[in-house]
Amino acid sequence: MANIQAFEKGGTKTYSIVEIVRGAPTTMADKGPDNTVFAFPIVAILEVLIALGMSVVLMFIALGKNAPLEELANPLVTTDPAKAPWYFMGLQELLEHMHPTIAGVLIPTLAVLFLIAVPYIDNTRAGAGKWFGAPREKRITLLTALYAVIVMVAYVLLDNAFPVRELLRAAVPAIVAQSIIPGLIMTILAALPALIVWRSRASAREILVALFTMLFVSAIVLTVIGFLFRGPGFKLYLPWDMPHGYNPLNNF
């Protein structure tokens, strides 16, 4: 019978180095006085309070506005405009500007892969658990958000006024006009803040902040444009000035 003895019987050595931990300890050692309380009942009470608060909010919305119901589905007649649920309106807005494989498949796939990769790109523990923990994080977030709003609105308006697709129709192959050119423009626009941050010897966290803010704010901007500013024929209108009495808020 195999019998491996790690410690000598009757020996005096009762300790050994098992592993050297690098970085911050995961235990509570060296972390100042214990600042904890028993989770029961305080956490349970907080959860009940939040649940009650949300119930009230939800009830008020439900009493105030009815869920929309249009006429019976008719496969022969498309509604004008035909919009996806609001959370996909950012994608539908992108579809207006580039080939469906880029806007509907490539960009969402890359976004999800990027999100999954986030904790593996930035694997330091510094700044965890603090709002805008990295040194220049708040500034990067604000500037990138501002940039994203301006650039995305400008892109939509410009491409609406001078659509690349129509200007180049028949002049170049469809794949250039619909996929390559808009794809390149989008890549440059989205990567620019991260590149600038990267040039200033930034940490992985700071580059991630630029990329995530770009993704997050662009998604919001495109969703708002698609949801509120697109009217009949999927053309741009002011939300309060839609033709045929179309009200974008009825699409919720």
């Binding site: 022969l76 498309t78 509604t79 469906p100 024929g233 999927f234």
Partner: peptide, 26 residues
């Protein structure tokens, strides 16, 4: 087929313009 090759909406025919115009993405 009445189905738009872009995203599958039903395309109406406009008699005046003598062309099909999809309401989804124009």
């Amino acid at each position: 087929w009445q189905k738009c090759t872009h995203l599958g909406c039903s395309v109406p025919y406009l008699e005046k313009a003598k062309q099909f115009e999809c309401p989804c993405h124009g």
